[in-house]
Design a protein around this nucleic acid. Structure first.
Lengths: 230, 230
DNA sequence: CGCCTCTTTGAGCTCAATCAAGGTGTGTGG
DNA sequence: CCACACACCTTGATTGAGCTCAAAGAGGCG
């Protein structure tokens, strides 16, 4: 464990209630890894030797479609566990984890998972909660399949902001491109741009350096709820 | 536990490797419940007092959209665990589980989960695998969002058949309506009918009493792979 | 300056949604 | 036994949201 990381780890809800010595054991052979923008923590298809806990920044979990276009399956934000489910059985990563902006993650070896994590009920509990959140999110998204594109985009942005910031903030602290939003909601870049440009023109939000700032959260929430047309 | 159920339980991969006495404990206060076609095992919003293990038939996990239309989030088939994730914390069911055809499920109280399941690493492992499968399935589905409707329907049917039958079978042993397929792939009934009617006319499949039988699996697989137009 | 990534805008087209109507089979009650 | 409701399937006509293709502007960087 490098210095300067401990405090980040301490604050993770994931480890809440664990004794310091137990945390030691849970992090046996763990390394913190800085990953630069666009670089990946692990790649789809690689043998899954470790799982990750996001400490800073964000990672997109990407699956390439058969045609080459890729789909963003999840945005992993600080506190999130990635590839936790694949540790159970020897296998390969089902997705790639690519950093969005400079990011930091703990890389924890599979063996530590098998030895320590899988027999710690409290950690298992935390991981179930994380999974549950992710699952709910996917379900909601599925339920919105037939909703207009604007609604999907609004929801994606809003929930991402909620997950990344102290409540009340109105900007998304991770750099995200229109293409990434498109990959996340299952739309084409052009369509995403058309929708979001309109919002910019109406003064609902601005984008600077790939960072989205919402100025009219009320309006965006209305769109998200489907109470507004377009 | 009623009679005639034991053998079903014995064969579940979920309990593989558990000693008989441990199985006893895992099933403390569990009841097997027969549920008739269209009736529900539990409803979205109800306080989550128990989770389920599907023994026979199938359950659709349904979420109602805000507009009233509902979305099928998952088809739970024998061996599947439903509402397993919500046992961790006291909460309400995030979906309804509705039987498709006469079905049977074990209802296992939350307390048993907390006492026994959550501290049994081997069971936890099995549940992780089940979750992983479900997660993969959702990811795949998300990756197909932009694929033509036929491809989505074909995939849904084929994977459902795989999960419900010994490998090699070519029919879906649970009664499913076009509406349900539509709700599962996120399309309108009419569109599903148009696609499937064409397949029937071409002799790829037949439907009798809501049971789908595939006669040209080769063709259906080609459609699923996107190698065929329409 | 050329290359790269990302954004933008326009034009045309297509797939699937919607609306509307009708058909079939089953159960139910008079 | 008929009538009626109900749940599901089918077909047609129309429409529109979003996709595709095409072209080009706007920063950042070696």
């Amino acid at each position: 464990m490098s210095s300067g990381i401990e405090h980040l780890v301490k604050n993770l809800p994931l480890f809440a209630g664990q004794s310091p010595t137990e945390v030691q054991r849970l992090l046996k052979d763990a390394k913190s890894a800085g990953v630069r923008h666009r670089e990946s923590l692990f790649n789809m298809g690689d043998s899954a030797q470790f799982f990750g806990v996001v400490l800073q920044g964000a990672f997109k979990l990407v699956r390439l479609g058969p045609d080459g276009s890729d789909t963003i399956v999840h945005f992993a934000t600080p506190g999130d566990v990635v590839a936790g489910l694949v540790m159970a059985t020897p296998s390969t990563y089902p997705v790639s984890a690519v950093a969005m902006g400079s990011s930091v993650a703990l890389k924890i070896p599979r063996q530590t998972f098998l030895d320590t994590w899988s027999v710690n009920p409290s950690i298992q509990q935390s991981m179930r909660e994380i999974l549950f959140t992710r699952m709910s999110h996917m379900h909601e998204q599925k339920a919105l399949q037939k909703a207009p594109l604007g609604q999907k985009i609004a929801r994606e942005i809003v929930t991402l902001i909620e997950r990344c910031t102290e409540s009340g903030e109105t900007f998304l602290p991770i750099p995200i491109t229109r293409q990434e939003i498109a990959d996340a909601v299952g739309a084409s870049v052009e369509s995403v741009i058309r929708v979001m440009s309109e919002w910019s023109q109406k003064g609902y939000m601005t984008t600077t350096d790939h960072v989205i700032h919402i100025s009219r959260m009320d309006k965006v929430l209305e769109i998200m709820m489907g109470q507004i047309e377009k």
